[in-house]
């Protein structure tokens, strides 16, 4: 436990070092998450549109 505390303190500069690595991990993870959500949402929307298209086609054919 003692050695872990010494390690986390990093010679008194622990706050700066952990804040740096924390910022890197949080921001990179956040950007990845946002990008994935965006790509996923678009993919679902496209799938819905694609699925609906043949029906539309068929309906139009019946009408004409």
């Amino acid at each position: 436990m003692e050695t872990l505390w010494v390690y986390l303190q990093m010679g008194g500069h622990g706050g700066f070092i952990w804040a740096s690595y924390g910022a890197v991990l949080v921001i990179l993870f956040g950007l990845w998450l946002i990008s994935r959500r965006f790509a996923g949402a678009v993919q679902t929307e496209l799938a819905v549109l694609d699925r609906d298209r043949p029906h539309r086609q068929a309906r139009q054919n019946r009408e004409t």
Binding site: L31, W32, S35, A39, Q43, L46, L49
Partner: peptide, 24 residues
């Protein structure tokens, strides 16, 4: 590697978004 990974995800999203706009 992270750049390539996220870039590919984003480009895929943009391409599909373009398809959606064209369909609409």
């Amino acid at each position: 590697a992270y750049y390539i990974w996220v870039l590919l995800i984003r480009i895929r999203g943009e391409i599909n978004a373009g398809k959606i706009r064209a369909l609409r």
